[in-house]
């Protein structure tokens, strides 16, 4: 014993730490990664590794040489951003494009706000939307699953959501359905789409893991998916010829990935349970509005970014349930 340590209470600390949480998220993403590699093979491996490495590298370079602070590139958050960015790109995206996306994600999405904890928008989504707006053609040519050894030369096509969007203008839903993989195939991820968003079941396994490890709570994913289910369900009941059924909406596109991983990002989601409900319902409603009435076939990314912007407001006005009602202090 040299000198006694003195500090205010509490004197013990839980095992939780930021790197532990971050690596927990990464572990939960592994099943989805495995499924994506199964369907997209070499392309998935290339874009994922490029994305992760460039995110970590850009974080390091910006912190070291521009902000001149101690780099925190290994705390796992840049790794997750890279992984999620790769997950929402088509598996045949050129390497240079992935790197631009990573630069936008880390540079614009995260570092301009002051780094981890201060960003308003989900960095991976910022990167994804940046690419989507800059290179719309490359970002909407989705490779067919099952071409393991093909990367840039993969055969591409439209996602189920895009087929539906195109189709309902002139035909009924039941006429379009045969062109879309069956629900079991959608559930297993055998469809065209962003590399990581396809496999609903793998993402659900990841969610269960995160719930078990108490990394996230169930409120945000359930409120988003539930809202989409209800909203599209009502539309479907009104006119099943014009509107696809709710199950289709939940299983297709980036809804699962968005609801489970993008929207639950700690930094950019509300702090209180009631705030989480507002946020989740908002994302669900805007997603459906964009998908059905908007110009794009998919709207989860935009919906999450829009609601991200409301999070500071939600945090300001939605307070947790205080213990006991207030009385006047004598």
């Amino acid at each position: 014993m040299d000198k006694l340590v003195v500090s205010p209470s509490p004197h013990i600390h839980s095992e939780a730490s930021v790197p532990r949480l971050m690596y927990g998220v990464i572990i939960s993403l592994l099943p989805a990664l495995a499924v994506s590699i199964f369907y997209f093979g070499i392309g998935m491996i290339i874009i994922t590794s490029v994305s992760i490495i460039s995110c970590i590298l850009f974080e390091y370079l910006i912190q070291k040489f521009i902000l001149k602070v101690r780099p925190t590139h290994l705390d796992g958050s840049a790794f997750i951003t890279g992984l999620l960015l790769a997950f929402c790109l088509p598996a045949n995206t050129p390497i240079w494009m992935v790197m631009i996306g990573a630069l936008a994600a880390i540079g614009i999405g995260k570092m301009t706000f002051g780094g981890l904890g201060n960003n308003i928008f989900n960095p991976a989504l910022v990167g994804r939307v940046f690419l989507f707006v800059s290179f719309p053609v490359a970002m909407t040519s989705w490779p067919e699953p099952g071409q393991w050894m093909k990367y840039a030369d993969a055969v591409t096509g439209a996602t189920p959501l895009a087929i539906m969007k195109e189709g309902v203008a002139s035909r009924t839903v039941s006429e379009i359905m045969p062109e879309i993989p069956g629900y079991l195939q959608l559930f297993l991820g055998n469809m065209k789409g962003s590399s990581g968003e396809i496999a609903a079941f793998a993402l659900l396994i990841g969610m269960l893991y995160m719930l078990y490890r108490k990394i996230i709570t169930w409120h945000i994913p359930v409120s988003i998916i539930g809202t989409v289910f209800l909203f599209t369900g009502i539309l479907w009941l009104i006119n099943p010829d014009k509107f696809a059924d709710p199950l289709f909406h939940i299983l297709s596109g980036g809804l699962m990935l968005g609801a489970i991983y993008m929207a639950t990002d700690y930094v950019t989601s509300p702090m209180t349970v009631r705030g989480m409900w507002i946020y989740g319902v908002g994302i669900g409603v805007i997603t459906v509005l964009i998908r059905i009435f908007g110009a794009y076939p998919e709207g989860v990314q935009f919906a999450i970014l829009i609601l991200n912007a409301f999070v500071p407001l939600i945090n300001k006005y939605v307070k947790p349930k205080r213990f006991g009602k207030e009385v006047k202090n004598g």
Binding site: K3, L4, V5, V6, S7, P8
Partner: peptide, 22 residues
């Protein structure tokens, strides 16, 4: 000589309210 080692929040105000100091 320093007799203790303070590890609370790094501000004088909090250290002062906690104890006499290192």
């Amino acid at each position: 000589s320093l007799k203790t080692h303070y590890e609370g929040a790094p501000t004088c105000a909090i250290a002062h309210s906690l104890y006499a100091g290192e």
